[in-house]
Design a protein around this nucleic acid. Structure first.
Lengths: 349, 349
DNA sequence: ATGAAAGCGCTAACAT
DNA sequence: ATGTTAGCGCTTTCAT
């Protein structure tokens, strides 16, 4: 039913609306913001004018005047990682539920760029910034954010324990559980695949995993494989490892491609997963749960996390009250069917 | 070496800089924009002031005055699809090469939301908008974009042939090649897996594929499977199809999960790919090329496409000259090792 | 309940 | 070469 408004190329301003309605711009502004001190008849005529002219507020002008924008920024290492992409989508939804827009940017795993983006957020007068640090929450970008008057929250690639402004999945708990299961099943030789060197976060976790394994399994032989740049090199490295007599009986991977290639090699050698080789992925990817056998993996409740994150940042935006403690979000583990007792071992007790 | 600037909480304006340097704000503005008509000594003192105060321009004020922002918007159906996520990353880079920022948003497969976002882009005074339509370039969102004075380009989910403002991969050429190969190998019975019903784009292409198959292979039996909502239902449907006597010898899929489940079933039935079942994916996903046998798939040169897209939109922003024709970008096909002659068939001639 | 007026920080036209 | 000035479109006192 709604007819076409606005034939002219120039957009109506608050002045046009005021003139059309026969009131002052202050009154129009009040109507736009639902101020109760406007006479009902004036509210109506202003609304008519708005409708007739197809007026929409110019957020640039409003925000310039106000000094802060209804905008929260996010800086992720990259959009290509479905994990981060998923965060962006979920956070966009959460921001908009509160009448804010999300300004999404990517640092491309560069701390230099992260710093630039932090400054851009400041320049843009966003109300808050969510940063997934390239390295951790003590980098230069994070420093800028902390020093500014914007609300800031650091997520995912964080160390925590200091500021009380970090939120992350409780990966250490997940590691604890997987290590416990590993010990219970009796694995003695394992391979830990660490991802892309440009991603310090998972690398830190992998180190923690290695340490935990050694602590939990006395005499454990833990091999670490840093994911090389090319798929071919990685495949070679894996083949060599699996070719040795002292081959690992369990692969714990932080890298999707390492899981894929491990499955390839297993198939080529005619090994069954999990009977001949156990496997677990700390990087959750859709297909791992859809194949047979289902590959065990950590499950991250991203939508829920997005709610927590947005709540936290709006708490800061509104109250200016800083949350006093770092937040650790639980993550579930789906062991799938990919881990069992190693060949020739009995399940201890 | 750079010392800490700006101890105060309030950001310096162009006035502070002018005062500090002992010049007028007009001069500061000129220096900021590299105007050559400023005395070198003044340039220096202004630069010193900027440095000393840690001044950065307020883009809100500048853009309000200018009436247009150095910003191009993009609206994708979702960030979760790695294909679109990849576009966002590549386009962000391209925009920034030209000194523009990218405002990335997602329509969540909703035309209603697409319309809202189109209006938001208008409100934000972005210079140009790249839209991946939920349905096609004739929706309401696209209409708003066309009517506005913003430059607009419609990509990927487009029909084309009308406006000359669309850019898409040449999927029909890819389909042609795959159909030719199918005919050459002698397949008679095939299954086409269509994805998510909320994605009209691939659905259109799938229809075209079906028609092409029927045209190229006389008497072909082409089954179409619309991807149901749940993985379980899809698995069931596939199992039933493969259980029948007249089972397809080739699967052509527009859906990642359909490929995964097909591989599952093949393995369970102890079929080899491609000897017992040929497979091709129109949805390119990393792992398909990393497994053995490598699954054939269409390869989309997204980075190159991003360059073309940005070039096109900046052409419109700068010249106001509309490109007169729709653009079709070539895509490569990687047949991998997943297609061969069906059992008991000879390769014709 | 309403409107006049003073900016927010900048650009650009115009004088000088 | 430089400065003055008039806005961009809005919000927000502050009188009335």
């Amino acid at each position: 039913m709604a007819a076409e408004k606005k034939t002219s190329g120039v957009r109506p301003s608050i002045h046009s609306v005021a003139a059309y309605a026969g009131v002052s711009i202050a009154t129009v502004s009040k109507v736009m913001h639902g101020d109760k001190t406007v006479r009902p008849e004036n509210v109506v005529s202003v609304q008519n004018a708005i409708e007739a002219l197809g007026y929409r507020i110019n957020p640039l002008a409003a925000d310039l005047r106000r000094g802060r924008r209804k905008l929260v920024g996010i800086i992720v290492p990259s959009f290509d990682d479905p994990y981060y992409a998923s965060f962006v989508g979920a956070l966009e939804r959460q921001a908009e539920r509160r009448g804010y827009a999300l300004a999404a940017t990517s640092s491309r795993d560069s701390e230099k760029r992260e710093l630039e983006l932090a400054k851009r957020m400041e320049d843009w007068r966003v109300s808050g910034v969510i940063l997934v640090p390239v390295k951790d929450e003590n980098g230069q970008g994070a420093r800028v954010l902390k020093a500014s008057e914007m609300a800031a929250v650091f997520i995912d690639n964080v160390i925590g324990g200091t500021g009380g402004e970090t939120i992350a999945f409780d990966y250490r708990a997940a590691i604890r559980d997987v290590v416990a299961q590993t010990a219970r099943l009796g694995h003695q030789r394992m391979l830990v695949a660490v991802p892309d060197v440009r991603r310090p976060g998972p690398t830190r976790l992998a180190s923690h995993l290695v340490a935990s394994l050694k602590a939990a399994v006395p005499g454990a032989a833990v091999q670490v494989l840093s994911t090389p740049t090319s798929r071919e090199k990685l495949a070679e490295a894996l083949a060599e490892i699996f070719g040795s007599a002292e081959r690992p009986t369990l692969v714990l991977s932080f890298s999707e491609v390492a899981v894929t290639l491990t499955l390839n090699i297993a198939r080529r050698l005619d090994w069954n997963v999990p009977e001949d080789l156990s496997l677990f992925s700390f990087k959750p990817v859709e297909w791992m749960r859809a194949i047979e056998p289902a590959i065990g993996s950590v499950q991250l409740p991203i939508d829920g996390a997005a709610v927590t994150i947005m709540d936290t940042i709006f708490q800061k935006i509104d109250n200016k009250a800083a949350a006093a403690h770092d937040q650790l979000l639980p993550c579930k583990i789906d062991f799938g069917q990919s881990m069992t007792t190693p060949r020739g071992q009995e399940l201890s007790r």
